[in-house]
Simulated scan of single mutants.
Amino acid sequence: MDSYPVNATEDYDYNDSDTDYDLDYDPDGVVVPCNLNSNRGVGITINTYIYALICVFGLLGNVMVIVTYAFYKKAKSMTDVYLLNVAFADLIFVIALPLIIYNEHYDWHMGTVACKLLRGAYSINLYSSMLLLACISGDRYVAIVQARRSFGNRSRSLVYSRVICLNIWFFAVILSIPTVIYNQRVEEHGTFECTFKFDADDTSTARLMKVLLPSMQVSVGFFVPLLVMGFCYSSILVILLHTQSFQRHKAVRVVLAVVIVFVACHLPYNVVVLYHTAYLFKERQCETEQIILMTITVTRSLAYLHCCLNPILYAFIGVKFRNHMQKILVDLWCHGKKYLYTTRQTTSKQTSEVYVSAPCKSPEESNDAHQSSFTM
């Protein structure tokens, strides 16, 4: 089988309508192009089920984090501010996923505008969430390893964290601009896809972007946060292992879980993308390229799974957050019960029947320490 040069795009679909392929030969000697979309149906099926799970659990987890900070727990530390911003970043992507699923099934029926917005949403989520996770590891490093130097003005540290978050969001938007500009709805082998599109006479820009954007994604969106997290959490582990504390083993397990899950979710995808980019303009066999593209599809879904795990690893693994989550569930039950009680009471004025038991007692009517927290 002959080889052919392959051009790649930054994300999602690693092909391009402007690519000139060397040709394969069928058994009769007829020249035919290599079809990079031969496994497209399988990829869409895999993505549909995995993305659906990510949508459900990612939406629930990140909404719970946002509700907790909005109504139950004020952001009192830099890590709290970072966690809240991570939840917003992941929520943006989770909301975009159903639209991505729909458009991949129906040849990007929503057009080029949706293509640009959805690709841009993913890119912004990638850079912002990864850099914010690096900031969380840095804040934990300062709080544990540099504990003696970390005492300072709480309000000042909150101001610093908000400024850092604003800069990260701005940086993520800037890095995502090329993704928004060059992604378009184009026709590939009789189907429409959202992929990179360049002018036919602008080959220099095409080659630059097809190398630069995946390289930035791998370096800024993975390796830089990985280096920061590796240094910070390894230093934290050294301190914890020398600490005689009842909570030491639990803290060590949490740190290891954070690092292992991060690496397991993102390393396979970024390694495949890095390999694909390194051999971007070299000849490769058609079957090899098809295998690589399918591997990218599978490992990309694994990377997306991390947005579901962030709330568990960074928020709900703590006792306080779990208590707040229980309060949220109790309050939802009480407010729902109160609504049903009021509705049934109104509709049954002509009878003496009571269909629903009395609603939960209000904080004033109960000596319990729990309070309804749907007020700021």
Rank of each mutant, 00 (worst) to 15 (best):
K74H: 07
A52Q: 04
P363A: 12
V218H: 01
S128N: 12
S219F: 14
V42F: 07
R148M: 09
V180C: 12
L302P: 00
S123L: 03
F57S: 00
Q217F: 12
S235G: 02
V258W: 00
L59S: 06
T179N: 08
G336W: 07
I50S: 02
F374R: 04
I168M: 04
N7D: 14
L53F: 14
N35F: 05
A134E: 06
S235D: 08
T346W: 06
I50Q: 01
D368M: 06
G29N: 10
K282W: 06
C34N: 08
A75W: 00
H335G: 00
K76M: 15
P225W: 01
L118Q: 04
H276A: 15
R284D: 02
C307F: 06
I101T: 14
D11P: 00
M209K: 04
I174M: 14
T45L: 10
R284I: 09
Y341E: 09
R248K: 14
C334I: 07
T9Y: 02
K76S: 13
G230V: 12
A87L: 04
I181A: 05
D199L: 11
N39E: 11
L226G: 05
C34Y: 01
T342N: 15
L280H: 03
N270G: 03
A87H: 03
N37P: 02
E187H: 06
S357F: 13
K327T: 15
N35Y: 02
I54N: 00
Y4K: 09
